[in-house]
Amino acid sequence: MAGAEGNGIMKRMWTGVGDFFDERFDMRRVIKEFAEHNVPDHVNWLYCFGGITFLCFLIQLVTGILLAFYYQPTMDQAYSSILHIMDDMPFGVFIRSLHAWTANIMILMVILHMLRVFFHAAYRPPRELNWLTGVLLFFITVTFGFSGYLLPMNQLSYWATKVGSEISASMPFIGPSIQAFLLGGAKIADATLTRFYAIHVVILPVTITILLGLHFLMVRKQGIADPL
């Protein structure tokens, strides 16, 4: 509700901030180029799954950080800290449910995105490396799902992780080492929970952020593939 003079001050301030970054990083040209780049005509609604996956990732980032404020990764406290989040925290049920639902939708969207790229043969040269980062992103997203499944420490978490670790143990040569690495001991215990937590909230988020950066830079540089 500022008057004409107030608007003038605001405008000058923003222009000043814009000039500051423009002089140092050539920001206006970069933003203008991005805003004005053309999206080819053959792009239809099938091309939206990648973007949806990215928004899912952002939702997971925000809700995940909120959950991490209260979640406690120990055998004693994990389940009760989830109860605490759901019973006592404002919007606790909503935030946790949002995290769990978005996780499922994110995996579905990654799969749909991959299928779209595969059947359009958009993986073909010169975009092999972007397909490669995409496949890695798929495996990371699924690993997010597997590691996050244990964290509430309910019956499903416990037994699904037990079965999952037994399946990975039957891999030839490296199986037993992988199981030992996952569990941090002979059975699911505190060591397992802290490992899964570290994987879920540190290792995977850092990795996925780097790979998403590469994925987007390559799309920007190479453009969207021509239709078949």
Binding site: C56, I59, Y79, I82, L83, M86, V93, F94, R96, S97, L98, A100, W101, T102, I105, P152, M153, N154, Q155, L156, S157, Y158, K187, I188
Partner: peptide, 19 residues
Amino acid sequence: TVAFLASLMPMPVGEPADA
């Protein structure tokens, strides 16, 4: 969609883990 699902079908906590 996700707000709708999270509001109307909240994730249950389930039974606590029992080895």
